[in-house]
Write a protein that binds this DNA or RNA. Sequence first.
RNA 1: GGCGCGGUAGCCAAGUGGUAAGGCCGAGGUCUGCAAAACCUCUAUGCGCCGGUUCAAUUCCGGCCCGCGCCUCCA
Length: 454
Amino acid sequence: MPIQLFDSLERKLKPLAPAHPDGVFRFYNCGPTVYAPAHIGNFRTFVVNDVLRRLLELEFGADRVKHVRNLTDVDDRTIGQTQKEKRPLAEITQKWTDKFHADCDALNCLRPHVEPTATGHIREQVDMIEVLMEKGNAYRAPDGSVYFKIASFPAYGALSRIKERELKVTNSAFDADHKDDIGDFALWKAYKPEEDGDVQWPGPRTAAAGRPGWHIECSAMIKKHLGETIDLHTGGVDLLFPHHENEIAQSQCCNGTTFARHWYHSEHLLVDGTTMSKSKGNYYTLGDLVEKGYSPMAVRYALLSGHPRKQLNFTLDSMHAAGSALATLRAFRTTLHASGVTHDVFAPVFAALQDDLNTPAALGALFSIINRKSVEASAASFDRVLLAFGLKLDAPAPRANVPADILALAEKRWVAKQAKDFATADALRQELAAAGWSMLDRKTDYKLEPLKKV
RNA sequence: GGCGCGGUAGCCAAGUGGUAAGGCCGAGGUCUGCAAAACCUCUAUGCGCCGGUUCAAUUCCGGCCCGCGCCUCCA
């Protein structure tokens, strides 16, 4: 069964298939801006896209998928950070790129095949801008910036239905810029010494030195690494407008061909029922959750527990639920034997994933199957399911070091237990619990763990 | 104001024109000195409210209420 996925442009489910004769599926996912740690909302998008990537590889073959995800390493926010920290742009973006990679690895996200950066593709962006200027789709503003003229692209707004919108009239940015029309957007931003520090490059012909506008980087990097027409372009819903709308305009005017055959947008994560923000105190990075004792795999599971095209309400309770569900899967895995079963009992799981990436339905199907009285599943078939979800069931990472006094108590209790002095042993268990530790007895030894969160 | 999404058990969350997957929590049980783990059983006559269509609606249509998102550089 082919993978069906909702297309944000045509607003219906469409099968995914490579269009290029080489049979390679061309997949572009808008990546992060590297100026701060990514939050779990960002990671919802990347985890969802990672499952998509895995499904595509299962469908077309691992060598028949080319996955590109960019790193935005020059824009208002990254430059703002250099000004705030008084450090070079490259130093800041490298730091947060490394952090992003570490988080992705912890969440078991496959690395994209190409991870291009905006600063690494200035030439390509300038080239495109020059073509757009030559074709009359872009113009130089008085300050030397270059803007895209949306009036030159009649199809503008198809993705976001912008023409049907009544734009808010209050737009302070309009006066500050030098564009002809309020809808026009920057392809190239002229250098501003007071804001930009030492961040600048030579601009397109006739334009001033400066830096690329945000949108053009994706158009240029896609053209370079995937070609003029790609099979799938994805990102968070917030990118629908203006980012993706603008990418379509730039790329199609420049190249004269269809830009992306399929658009997919995953919805936002809510935390405690509302949008995440630092001021509301409901803003989490992966590191924040790990500090609270949750494993990255539990985070991944929680992020997949809602339909990707629906807002997902993330709570600490859902983290706990995810951890417990993973433990159930881990226990089930140990009952499986390598060999044997030919038919795939997990077919319904894949069917749900292939039906618009319905991860919650797929997880439901998975548990329904493993809850059956007699499951004829092989370890291999189960592992294939885990591979698709990107779930690793390794035992939880070693806990924090056990303090010496706790260890001493535990040792004392173990001795008492061996001597069958159960009264003493129970009293010591109480003491350990009061100190926040749980002692798990085994046949020949014991294990200490911090008490479970309620 | 415009565009869009959603309201299903204590929490999270699928789904369907014929009467509700799954996870967590909770309860009971089996098993272990205890604890933990594991395993078994149970847990929505109900799907925001009011109408309508229909033999039949949570599922379709209309109205209303509530929540959330976007509306120029936020995944």
